[in-house]
């Protein structure tokens, strides 16, 4: 195949690695976004002194390199005797890491909705919840989307670090093939192309939604 020793089986092996990358990313982005929405709503509304512990914790997750978080988190769950699989551990740590960024995105989006608009909604008799659901979230979504797409793409690439817990995702799979076949440039090109193929649709989807919303308003 193209003058390389890479076989169809090896490609399938890379494909399985890509599936693991997708699984870790989807779970981390889903979990991180749900947590981020909850924390972001708190951040935008609750008393800042009450939130100090949460803010500090999220700052830690944003500041400490992900690799260190993964290794420490894995050691911690082992010491605590939780017996989590490397995959579960990776998903939990990555979700928390994602939530730290998502929180700031959500907070910024909520604060971008003008107070006067919310006041108008409340003066029509809408409750706080109805205001959040009908006005703040739809308006904030348009603000948050570009950053959220960026975060998702970033998490997909950062998820490669879970290989340090022994998980064979896309990058680890390509390393294994490189060790065996000694064709680093070609194999890394293939792996890079797969990463691109995974990211590109997400980026396009984001651009498309943005365009449609701009046409709306």
């Amino acid at each position: 195949m193209l003058g390389t020793a890479l076989t169809l089986n090896d490609l399938l092996f890379l494909g399985r690695g890509a599936l693991v990358t997708i699984a870790v990313t989807v779970i981390a982005v889903l979990g991180g976004t749900l947590l981020g929405v909850a924390f972001g709503v708190l951040r935008a509304h609750a008393n800042r002194w009450l939130l100090l512990p949460l803010v500090f914790l999220l700052d830690v997750f944003r500041s400490v390199p992900l690799l260190i978080q993964l290794i420490l988190g894995n050691a911690f769950q082992a010491v605590a005797g939780w017996g989590w699989s490397p995959f579960a551990t990776s998903c939990v740590i990555l979700s928390l890491y994602t939530s730290a960024y998502a929180t700031e995105i959500v907070r910024g989006a909520i604060e971008a909705v003008p107070q006067t608009t919310r006041r108008a909604a409340r003066s029509l008799g809408l409750t706080w919840r109805q205001d959040m659901a009908s006005i703040v979230f739809p308006m904030g979504l348009r603000v948050a989307l570009p950053s959220w797409i960026g975060l998702t793409l970033g998490v997909m690439k950062d998820s490669a670090l879970v290989l340090w817990l022994g998980i064979i995702e896309l990058l680890r799979a390509s390393q294994i093939l490189i060790t065996r076949l000694q064709e680093p440039l070609f194999i890394l090109t293939v792996a890079g192309a797969i990463y691109f193929a995974l990211s590109f649709p997400i980026a396009r989807l984001g651009a498309r939604l943005e365009r449609r919303w701009r046409e709306d308003d």
């Binding site: 003008p114 006067t116 608009t117 006041r119 108008a120 909604a121 409340r122 003066s123 029509l124 008799g125 009908s134 006005i135 739809p138 308006m139 348009r142 919303w213 709306d216 308003d217």
Partner: peptide
């Protein structure tokens, strides 16, 4: 409930843009 009876319109019209 009260605000259903009291309509208010502001200087800034505050349309819901979406």
């Amino acid at each position: 409930r009260l605000r259903r009876k009291v309509g208010i319109v502001f200087q800034q019209w505050n349309a819901f843009p979406h």
